[in-house]
Design a binder for these strands. Structure first.
Lengths: 339, 339
DNA sequence: ATGAAAGCGCTAACAC
DNA sequence: GTGTTAGCGCTTTCAT
């Protein structure tokens, strides 16, 4: 069995409590004793049993992260950022994937609470806050990531999606495009925000909003790239096709480009395409993709930081919102080959 | 505070132990009592405190996963598979990323052990088993993922890398290529295995192995795609350039293709390129990439299954090896546009 | 500055 | 079938 505090105490002829105090940096321990304890701790490579510590103290030194789907690199990178942000405080990350199912998400949240996580980071796949009631009941601090829920006043770390939509659309406008279409996503805050930014950019530049240029397809039907292909197909069927498309994410943009090329249209000469997310490899696609960087790792790190601070200062500060400024990455799909 | 077994017991006028037994499906409880308990449990949405259960029982119902880097989609998908594989047994996943640093990896392993994980899955970034001594000491079952360590006899779940290398190379040979180069990776089992497969395929087809056609660059210098670009650059500098390249992973292949195109060479007409890994979007790259699928999710699920079985049957069966058969995915980078 | 006692919420013997 | 008694390895409070 692993070495316990009791063993160290016995070895040194001090009490278990003293050892415990040293390990938790309490000040009411003699310098000499402290040194002896630390020495022995190192010798035996003692590691405190976190289950016991958690049970006794009510803090588990772990935080839970619930993502809709780890395969979207956005969430993988987010998880990396969280993990890195926690490490320096030697907190650990318990990861749960909800597989895009609200029911599973609730269940995973319950499980994480049962594990005694000190805080919860949730990139929710729900669109109401019904599933969070049990959370509010428990006193565990939690932070929403990436997607916020309209009626839930909570801490949030994510992208400024309205800005993302605006920047993307304005980029297209500045390139002289006038019939700018939008391929949108599910009914979640990210998609809605980006759509909103798209509209704002149009009106700020006195361009009309044309509903026939906005296509949304539910994710339930098909996966990312296919959505883009089909949505773009729809857009090509209207009498005057758009001269630019802003897609709510990169996968969709990839699909859109694929569809355009298959229809012998040139990107960006005939139709310029913007994505959002700056996913890995977006630079090496059939047409290098212009997109918006969301800095997922930074978001993760920020979420970790916020979570740790909420844990530290028992009091819960009122809902805080940390928005990462989206950054334009202009590549060939809008700028063309000329460099 | 959360509801405890004690509360349920008090409500029902039975003892805490009875409640405990019901919750753990012990048979020595009356049918009537069992029903009453379960009813109350549901009413109160009772969730057992896993820290307490873990401390008392010595099992935490969690398993640890250590990956070198979550950003490589391979490991993200692996993690998904593990997470999914654990869920049906309501085990949870504690995730740690070693950031490609052996020192950090050891530390994370210690932390996971301190958390009382019932098993450990490790995709190690070490190349010796020094860091695992503490593991062997603890009695926690562990499984190596993706990369195995030469001198450590342990359970392993991963790709049959030799087969992967062989299949990839044979595909190129069957397409009539004769000067087949290889861009290799670090000194870890995956790269070595693929190189080995490459050599085997050559010799099985009576093609000479030419050391000048094998380039390896250490990861320390640069990231995936750049490695491929530079390595390909090296290959283009030899007197007779190769007519095909098998790259040890997809990122490298992307870089290689990029380099070829920039040098006005056609893929695959002048040089055919094979990757390995079948990463997301490999189908939508500047040249859709021929590659080898490793089914990372399946590997993760398999690892979870194996881990659970090791936990269940206290005894540790002798080192078991589960190799996923790699699958050829032939696309444009070897087959050309003709479909 | 040090330690004895109590208890965190549960499980694991063993009695009844 | 049911309950009693002891812990699991720690932290916490309160004496000393």
């Amino acid at each position: 069995m692993a070495v316990r505090m009791k063993d160290i105490a016995a070895d040194l002829g001090v009490s278990l409590v003293t050892v415990s105090k040293v390990l938790r940096n309490k000040t009411d321990v003699g310098e000499k004793t402290r040194r002896r304890v630390l020495k022995r701790v190192r010798e035996l490579k003692y590691q405190p049993n976190m289950l016991a510590r958690g049970l006794a103290s009510g803090k588990s030194y772990s935080i839970g992260l619930v993502v809709p789907d780890l395969v979207h690199t956005f969430f993988a990178e987010l998880a990396m950022g969280v993990s890195a942000g926690l490490r320096k405080d030697s907190y650990q990350l318990i990861l749960a994937s909800a597989e895009e199912e609200p029911g599973l998400e609730c269940q995973e949240i319950e499980h994480l609470l049962a594990r005694g996580v000190d805080a919860l980071l949730i990139a929710s796949c729900q669109n109401s806050f019904a599933g969070f009631k049990s959370l509010l009941h428990a006193k565990v601090p939690y932070i929403l990531l990436d997607r916020f829920l309209p009626n839930l006043k909570a801490h949030f770390v994510g992208t400024d999606d309205v800005a993302a939509g605006r920047i993307a659309t304005e980029h297209l406008i500045q390139l002289g495009r006038r019939r700018i279409a939008h391929i949108g996503g599910e009914v979640i805050s990210t998609s809605l925000g980006r759509l909103d930014g798209y509209k704002k950019a149009l009106s700020a530049n006195k361009l009309p909003f044309r509903s026939e240029l906005v296509v949304t397809r539910s994710r339930l039907e098909e996966a990312g790239v296919q959505i883009g292909e089909h949505a773009m197909g729809d857009l090509l069927r209207i009498k005057r096709i758009p001269d630019a498309v802003f897609c709510y994410n990169d996968l969709t943009a990839v699909g859109a480009i694929h569809c355009l090329l298959r229809n012998k249209l040139r990107v960006p000469e005939d139709v310029a395409v913007m994505g959002c997310g700056n996913i890995r490899l977006s630079e090496y696609l059939e047409v290098p993709l212009s997109t918006i960087d969301q800095c997922p790792e930074r978001q993760g790190a920020e979420a970790a930081r916020l979570a740790l601070s909420m844990i530290a200062q028992e009091r819960r500060p009122r809902a805080e919102r940390f928005l990462v400024e989206p950054k334009l990455i202009a590549r060939e799909s809008t700028m063309g080959r000329a460099k």
